[in-house]
Each structure stands twice: as C-alpha cells, then as structure tokens.
C-alpha cells in the first residue's frame, strides 16, 4: 500500500488522470506494469481498478447493475460478472444493497460499491483518489480498514491519494506530492527523522510549505 500524500491542488488528481490515460503527459511517459499508457493503454487499464475522487456511479441504476456494466466494459462474461458482483459486494459488506438503486445508498455505501466495482475485473493495482471525501469519521475508518484488508488478503497493490495524515499508518510507503513534484518518498515513520523534525505532521507541513 502506497499513500500519495499532498494538500489540495498538489497534483494528485492530475497524476491519476495521467496514470489512467485520460490524458497524456506532455513530457515523459507513464508505465503501468511495464506497459506504456501512450502506446498500449488497454493492456495497462485491464490491470488497474480505479476509484475517482468524484463519484462515478449511475444513480438511477442499482448497485448490481453498476457493477455488471463495469464488468461488461472489461469483457467479463455474464455469468462471471453476476457471480463476482455478489462476491465483491459482500467482501465490502454491502451485498444486501445489490438490488437497491445507488440513489438510495449512503455516502459510505456508495464508496464501497465503487471499490467493489473497481475490483470486478481482479486488477493487480487499485487506484483510490481521496476515497474518504465526504465520509464521516467512522465511515472513513471503516473504508480504510476494508482497503487495508484487501491489500493484505487480496495481494493487491493500492495507491491511495489523500490529504489526511490520519489515514497514514507508520509502516505505509508515502510519497509526498506538492505543486506537481515529489517532495519526499519513503516509509511514513521515517519521514520526521528525514526532515529533521519531531513528528510526521510537522514533517508534512514543512515538506509542503510553499517557498
């Protein structure tokens, strides 16, 4: 699990757009599992599950329909898509809402449905762009726990973008992004020592201070 830490406007969402091939980098290139996003985006996209910062569920469709639509886009056969939508929703503990329209779901449930959807095609990499936006504290904690479980049990690499320090565990890999460039990278509990301050919060503050 890698945490992409940065304040608002640091370039986290832009990085996500580049990694998912929504647009191309003007300079340099993006490689995902060795596939260049410019030349073979489809191969790379097939290995990625993405949860964007803004919700992207169809509110008029049910949770299950949303998942099956995504599965179809990834070329999963119908039977498999049906089976997996149940599996993934129960993994994230929202299986009871499978036939409810997304409109009727709470913010936390919608987020979990989105993560379940991103896992439908069994990606090796899960990208989450500020997934806890708009959730209350217990909702945030629950979501974080779910994703950490996934990482541990499912063997999935996770890139989690956030501006909340509370979401960083001491053993997480952290990349600090500020004004579009990487300020620091390494294990979270080593950040303070590397910067030469007392704690992580101070280290983050000093790394993202504008000159």
């Amino acid at each position: 699990m890698c945490i992409l830490l940065g304040r608002n406007g640091a370039g986290k969402t832009t990085l996500f757009s580049l990694v998912t091939g929504l647009y191309h980098a003007r300079a340099g290139s993006v490689l995902v599992f060795g596939h260049a996003m410019k030349s073979s985006p489809s191969t790379a996209l097939a290995e990625m599950g993405v949860v964007f910062q803004q919700p992207t569920l169809d509110l008029d469709l049910t949770a299950g329909e949303n998942l099956r639509y995504h599965a179809a886009l990834h070329g999963l056969p119908k039977s498999l898509s049906k089976e997996r939508s149940g599996e993934e929703l129960s993994r994230l503990e929202v299986a009871d809402r499978i036939d409810d329209p997304v409109r009727a779901l709470s913010g936390g449930q919608r987020r979990r449905v989105e993560i379940a959807r991103a896992l439908m095609h069994r990606p090796r990499l899960l990208l989450l762009d500020e997934p806890t936006t708009g959730l209350d504290v217990p909702g945030r904690r629950a979501l974080e726990r779910h994703v950490r479980d996934l990482c541990r049990d499912g063997g999935i690499a996770v890139l989690w973008a956030t501006h909340f320090l509370e979401e960083v565990a001491p053993t997480d890999n952290v990349v600090v992004l500020h004004e579009g460039s990487v300020r620091w990278g390494g294990r979270a509990d080593r950040m303070a020592a590397a910067v030469g301050v007392a704690d992580t919060a101070e280290a983050f503050a000093s790394l993202t201070r504008s000159p």
Partner: peptide, 14 residues
C-alpha cells in the same frame, strides 16, 4: 462532470 465518462474511457478498449 459527474465522472461516468471517465469510467467509460478507462475501459480497456480503444
């Protein structure tokens, strides 16, 4: 604006 176009465009197809 809502983002579902992103979902479509990040499908692994041309």
């Amino acid at each position: 604006e809502m983002g579902s176009m992103r979902l479509l465009l990040t499908a692994p197809l041309p």
